[in-house]
Design a protein around this nucleic acid. Structure first.
Lengths: 341, 341
DNA sequence: TTGGATATTCAAAGCGCTTTGAGAAAAGAT
DNA sequence: ATCTTTTCTCAAAGCGCTTTGAATATCCAA
């Protein structure tokens, strides 16, 4: 059943029926109720594509997910999506997830900008020297970035966590406890967030006059085995680090595993500080959480980024919006003074 | 630039341009090349909604993700999506992810069926007594189920892992090693896959004449703390289980943590067998994998389910397709004979 | 040279909705 | 009772594409 048929059935014009359905004021209450009832009774649902074509708006947001060599979706991503997706759904928007090879990403954005299938996109995980932002600005497709570039972040909207500060702070905390040798288990440092975290860590070390040791700095995919392998390597060193800074709970779990296997106790022999995205499936909570951490909800970030994009779409002329969230410091049971201090 | 403008610019009719672009034979090579070149040069991208309206097909698949009270997306889901999403993208389909509250799920399916916005849907995580399948059959919306119901699975397409067999086998393996007391850390048992796993476990115990002990059977969200808490509880029992069967690597990591904390060694004092979905961010691999497991790639399942749905959409009259995958048994280092055997 | 077959191109009618501009009906003012 | 207003309803023109059926060009054999 389409609009015309419904109109015929009601002996009304399509115009009136359309208006009644869409809540326009120039239709009497009596007629509106008749229309609404008939629509309900006949299971009438307006054709999505016809509506979109006529209105010129897609009511769709796209998340383009470039698959790297790993053919994986970052697990942090699923919580981000949960937050964003719920926001879209509430606002009557659909979310399309486009999984593409990295090489096709640009073409996808180009077609999105031209074919009107989406109203805007979210840019995930900006890399150092990322070209996507310039491209999107060029194309005029509304977007919000989760994260930001290393510089020039004034002329687009973004939401980011203060990664530099978080890691600087975490490092200082460990230094204050007396740790002198602190390892870093970081994500890929071509990602801006990881680069900033490294810089925060280096800044704190430098301020404390502690030399940098590349042997205890790791940078790769933030997964469980990453932490395991890094700790395996580090713990066998002559003068092993007494503290480890980790970029995610996932490698932290691997680190704990390696520490246990070495017959050591985390939070006693080796201190751990973790950046905690509050992944729903890896809660670090309780009265005394397992890990001392810097905490910032990636789920909430998803929600907020989605809101920012929707408001940008609905008020295209509003300025750029920037939010820099500070991670919350949470004392857990994974940190202590270094053993012989 | 739209089709008409492009046609005007080429001094051709929209008909011819459309045909040239879509590869119809009744247009000369010369003209086709002219059209293609002009489209390229002018960055012409056909309007998505206009195309869909005219063609009557959406070229979109929806995954409806009901959020339970937990407001989380199951992490297993992200790997499934990666596989499915890539398949859609290759076939020129879009994937929309609709995150909804459980209560709205039915309304969403109804509108999808009527408004033509999607060509088909994937049903995730069927529950015992699930009503979605009957609804979709009723609505005539093409769908494929990842998993299946407890009975009546002949009249719809599905892909499932033989969960019963996998857990029966895992239990038997532990029994053969000499374990007499085997705990089960399972997912929510209103989910069909979890119910089947439990049944396989119970069957093996029953065949071996071992009494069932509800005190060592757990059923909840498959996350890291689940395994931790279950093991905490179990290890303090007078006659603690010597082996644990776990439904996912996530709780298995929690279990390892609890075992370590108790001063015991996994794979020696306590044996673990895990169902391994081969989550990309929690690889259980290597020469000797950490966990003895039953392995079945959820990523591959996503790929295959997507293929099944696409072929169903393109050949609506083909029959139902059923695939039951057997999990692969992988011997790791988390199992041994029980301590004093 | 011509008739018929074949290869190309086109005008026009959808697809199902929204929206503009007008007209008819009802209500209020004089 | 007449003239404005205000309410309500409608016909028709899009939105940008595809597709049908017809028309024109081109080709070949007779």
């Amino acid at each position: 059943m389409n609009l015309k048929q419904l109109a015929d059935h009601l002996k009304l014009s399509p115009t009136t029926v359309s208006r009644a359905l869409n809540g326009y004021p120039e239709v009497s209450e009596k007629t509106r109720n008749r229309v609404l009832a008939a629509a309900e009774a006949n299971h009438y649902h307006p054709s999505h594509h016809a509506t979109r074509l006529a209105k010129g708006k897609a009511h769709v947001i796209a998340h383009v997910v470039p698959l790297s060599v790993h053919t994986m979706i970052n697990p942090h991503f699923s919580d981000f999506i949960a937050g964003a997706g719920l926001t879209y759904a509430k606002a009557g928007y659909d979310m399309i997830l486009r999984v593409v090879m990295e090489s096709e990403e640009e073409a996808v954005y180009r077609s999105f900008a031209k074919d009107g299938r989406v109203d805007g996109v979210i840019v995930h995980g900006p890399r150092v020297g990322d070209t996507r932002i310039a491209l999107l600005q060029d194309l005029g497709l509304p977007f919000v970035v989760h994260g930001r570039t290393m510089a020039d972040d004034a002329d687009y909207s973004w939401l980011d966590v203060n990664n530099f500060r978080a890691f600087e702070r975490a490092t200082n905390f460990l230094l204050d406890l007396g740790h002198q040798k602190i390892a870093l288990v970081n994500g890929f440092e071509d990602m801006v967030f990881a680069a900033r975290r490294r810089d925060g860590y280096l800044k704190a070390l430098k301020d404390a006059g502690i030399p940098i040791d590349p042997e205890i700095m790791f940078s790769s995919e933030m997964v469980e085995p990453q932490g395991y392998q890094a700790l395996k390597k580090v713990l066998k060193q002559a003068k092993a680090p007494t503290a480890i800074l980790l970029s995610s709970i996932l490698p932290a779990l691997g680190a704990v595993r390696a520490i246990h296997e070495a017959g050591l106790v985390p939070g006693k022999d080796v201190s751990l500080v973790v950046f905690d995205d509050q992944l729903s499936f890896l809660q670090n909570s309780g009265d005394i959480p397992m890990f001392t951490s810097l905490r910032s909800s990636i789920h909430d970030a998803g929600t907020r980024v989605a809101e920012m994009l929707l408001s940008k779409i609905n008020q295209p002329d509003s300025g750029f919006c920037h939010e820099l969230w500070e991670a919350e410091f949470v004392l857990g049971s994974s940190t202590a003074r270094p053993p012989q201090a």
